[in-house]
Design a binder for these strands. Structure first.
Lengths: 293, 293
DNA sequence: CGATGTTACGTGATACGTAACAATT
DNA sequence: AATTGTTACGTATCACGTAACATCG
């Protein structure tokens, strides 16, 4: 039983005769006649009675006809679905990102979606192999490392890593502090999953500096402890407890920043839509976090 | 796009590789590989990416997969429907009969149907070509003529044609009256579509007798007029207005009766169910109309 | 090497068209 | 005669299997 043969059956039933159905099927009458008989043999049903040199639907055929029609309409729907995909439709979009990013950035962005936007789905990432998620169901990956390989990419935003000190600290009047200066103190940092921590760890490792870290599961708690004068909080969020913000500069003089990058496959069938979506996300992030540039 | 190729796609997606899918499809790996590529060309979709000597679903393929699965499940449903028909299922049963019979007999019978019985449908018949309805959608025909041809048949019941006279009529003490006697009087008859009228007309025509008929669209009105002494009502229903019932005998001495016959195709896929249904109908009619024999 | 998937080539099945036939109207 | 559907026969297509090749772990 194939779609073709089912189509032949419906054509004959609709046209009322094999001869008339040839106009619908574009095959010759004997071929059509044979296919029909074979379908009957295959299904084990007598769909038509042959009498008086004519075909008339049997009750079995009459009962099977709507079933056959339904199957054909599903086949049409399948072809239509393929066409929509080909045209780049995105009924759902799956965004993969570290859990922190999903909560802090992706989720608020999804909250701005309208009814015509795709249904958002989400895929939490473990730190390693961020962009491999593109092969495991993600349409879009938001990562902190610049994507490698043949992915399309857009830098979304970058957030400075802040070192927060008390207003009575000796650095309170400065705007920046070097990494080398910083590691001389007790540092209050969030967990290794956080963006700030990862950026900080990477910079420290590059510089080969020893550090004394105290880890907090919440960066706000880290700030509170800094406000108590027990160390310097190195976090990425906004200041609390009247703490003073210092930017952190690396050995090469750059300000230590957390980069957020969006990546997707340029061969994705909805790549155009994805690019638009990423632009919206970029604008959203910059508006929300008041980014420069 | 055929069911076979769609099945190949789903098999490969499920198995994770072409090689593994050969266990599901029972064709060799190169053939499967080719069919898959052809499906991609036909749909215009890149369902898998070929990289690292492996296939991985693209977002397009991931989006198409549930659609393909749905089509296959519909195909299974279609095959299952064919199997049910083959086994003789009757989700609906279409009974064809003259409108009078549908109202007076078939409809009350349908009222006794339980939830497991087929959904009843109905097809009004014109008097001529009663049993031709079997080719126009009827599973079962209830007719007044004995069916001809190769149909399966069961006599359902027969109702006498009654001649109703007033209690003060000269015939009031008799049980029967001959057709020849009857036609000497003014006769009050129902419309030509009714069973009684048709049986009466046929008998009269056979006997070659002249008649004086007054036609009423309701046999109860005919009885009322007979009660008024304006003629003899020749109808098939039960007496009213204290009229006296006489059976009508033909020239050959038989009592004039209306026969009801059920007919269906012995090749009908649900012929067994139909036979049972007809037996129920027969019992129903006899119980309800208190038939002899 | 042992997986993978693709390409090449030959074969068998089969869907198809042309032609001839049979049966009704 | 004109229409219907079936049978017969030859052909072209196409799905399939075997084999050889390419690539990656």
């Amino acid at each position: 039983m194939e779609l073709r043969t089912i189509g032949y059956f419906v054509a004959v039933a609709d046209a009322g005769s094999v001869s008339a159905a040839t106009r619908l099927t574009h095959i010759t009458q004997p071929s059509l006649s044979r296919q029909l008989r074979q379908l009957e043999r295959e299904l084990g049903l007598e769909l038509f009675t042959r009498q008086d040199g004519r075909l008339t639907l049997t009750p079995a055929g009459r009962q099977f006809l709507p079933v056959a029609r339904d199957l054909l309409s599903r086949a049409d729907a399948t072809r239509a679905a393929a066409a929509r995909i080909r045209a780049g439709s995105l009924p759902t979009v799956t965004v993969a990102a570290p859990a922190v990013t999903l909560n802090d950035i992706v989720a608020p962005f999804f909250a701005t979606f309208g009814p015509d936007d795709p249904m958002p789905r989400v895929l939490p990432l473990d730190a390693s192999d961020e962009y491999g998620a593109l092969d495991r169901g993600a349409d879009l990956v938001i990562g902190t490392r610049p994507p490698s390989g043949t992915t399309a990419r857009t830098p979304l935003a970058s957030f400075p890593v802040n070192a927060y000190v008390r207003a009575d600290h000796e650095w309170a009047g400065r705007r920046e502090v070097t990494l080398a200066e910083l590691v001389e103190h007790d540092l209050l940092v969030p967990t290794p999953e956080s963006h700030a921590r990862r950026a900080f760890d990477a910079a420290v490792e590059t510089a080969g500096l020893p550090v004394r870290l105290t880890e907090f599961s919440s960066s706000q708690v880290a700030q509170a402890v800094a406000a108590a004068g027990r160390g310097i909080a190195v976090v990425s969020d906004d200041p609390r407890y009247d703490l003073v913000r210092l930017l952190v500069t690396t050995g090469s003089g750059d300000v230590l920043r957390i980069g957020l990058h969006a990546a997707w496959s340029p061969h994705h069938h909805g790549a155009a839509h994805l690019a638009v979506l990423v632009q919206r996300l970029r604008r959203f992030v910059r508006d929300r976090y008041d980014q420069p540039r």
